[in-house]
Simulated scan of single mutants.
Amino acid sequence: MAEHLASIFGTEKDRVNCPFYFKIGACRHGDRCSRLHNRPTISPTLLLSNMYHRPDMITPGVDAQGQPIDPRKIQEHFEDFYEDIFEELGKFGEIESLNVCDNLADHMIGNVYVQFREEDQAAAALQALQGRFYSGRPIIADFSPVTDFREATCRQYEENNCNRGGYCNFMHVKMIGRELRKKLFGRYRGYRIRRSRSRSASPKGHRRDSDRRERDRDRDYYRGGHGRSSRERPEKERKRRSRSPAREGSEERRARIEQWNREKEAREQ
C-alpha cells in the first residue's frame, strides 16, 4: 500500500494530495481545496505571489484608460521589472532561474518563481523579504515545492497554441530578450562555460541546426534545465550539484512528503 501511495503521489490519481500544488506551487481552489497542500519548510525555490502587474493586466494590449499599448512598451516594462527583481534577489545567492507567469487566473497572475542554487540562499532571501513592499504593495513570499519547471510549464504555450489562453493552470512563462538574459545570468561561471562551448566553430552546413540547438539550450537554461545532460557537465560541477539536497527527483520528494504525512498522523493519534 505504501509503495502504491508513493507511486501516485502528486498525480491525478492521488485523492489526498493536490497535484497542481505539487507541480506549480499554486492551486485555483486555494485553501478551499479538498486535497492537501504540503507546504515545504525549506526549498531552493521561492514563490512571490501576484507580484508582477503588467500595464495591460485588465485587458491584454489595452491600458486602464482603454488605449492600445505598443507591445514593445509592455516588454520594456516587463524587462525593467525582471532586472530589478533579479538584482535584488541576486544579493542572497546564485539564481538558477527566475520565472514570471503570464497567466490571468487569480492564483497565478503575476506569480514570480525564483530558484536559487542552494536552499540556505532561498531561506536568507525569504527572511529578508518579510514585511517589505514593492510598488506600494506588500510582498507575499513563501517556499515553493516547484524544483523542476519543465513539469510546471505549459508546453502548448511555448509552441503558441495553448487553447486555454491566460486561464491555463500550467505556467505561461514570460520570456526576456537574449541580451538581458546574457547580462544577468552571464555573471555565473556555469553559464559562461556553456556559452563558450556553444560558440565553437562548426561547418557552415550545420550552422542552422546549431543555432536552433543553442536557442533550445538557452530556453532550458532560463527554465532551470541548463540544457545539458549530466554526462555533458564537468565532473566538478556534477559533484557540487549532487551535494545540494534540492536536486532530489519527483519520486524522492513524493517519498519524503509521504513520510511527513505518516509522521503527522502518528503524532495526532
Results as ranks from 00 to 15, higher is better:
R207Y: 09
I69N: 00
N169F: 08
S43A: 08
E151R: 12
R54Q: 09
Q259K: 11
D218F: 11
H226D: 09
V173S: 07
N103V: 07
C33T: 14
R217G: 02
D70K: 01
R178K: 10
R132D: 05
R253K: 14
L5T: 02
N103D: 10
R231E: 10
F78V: 00
Q121M: 10
R187W: 11
E251D: 08
Y222D: 12
P44I: 07
S43F: 06
S244F: 03
L46W: 09
E214P: 00
K23C: 11
L184Q: 05
F149A: 02
I69Y: 02
S230R: 15
R199P: 02
F92Y: 15
A125P: 04
R219W: 11
K264H: 03
P71H: 13
R187G: 15
D70E: 12
I85G: 06
E87M: 13
S250F: 13
R197F: 15
G10P: 00
G165K: 06
G61F: 12
Y221H: 12
Q156C: 14
N111Y: 06
N161V: 09
I85N: 07
P234K: 01
N111W: 07
E88N: 14
R233E: 14
A128D: 01
E96N: 08
S135P: 05
R28I: 11
E88I: 05
R219G: 05
R54H: 08
G227N: 01
R132L: 12
G165N: 04
S135G: 10
S49Y: 06
G225W: 05
A141S: 12
I24S: 00
Y167Q: 00
R208G: 02
C162M: 03
E158Q: 14
G225Y: 03
H53L: 12
G227D: 05
F133H: 07
R256T: 10
I42P: 02
C33A: 13
R187N: 14
R155L: 01
L126E: 04
E214W: 05
K264E: 07
P55G: 08
L5H: 02
H37G: 07
E237A: 13
I8F: 10
F86L: 00
R233Y: 11
N161Y: 09
D211S: 14
S198Y: 13
Q127V: 02
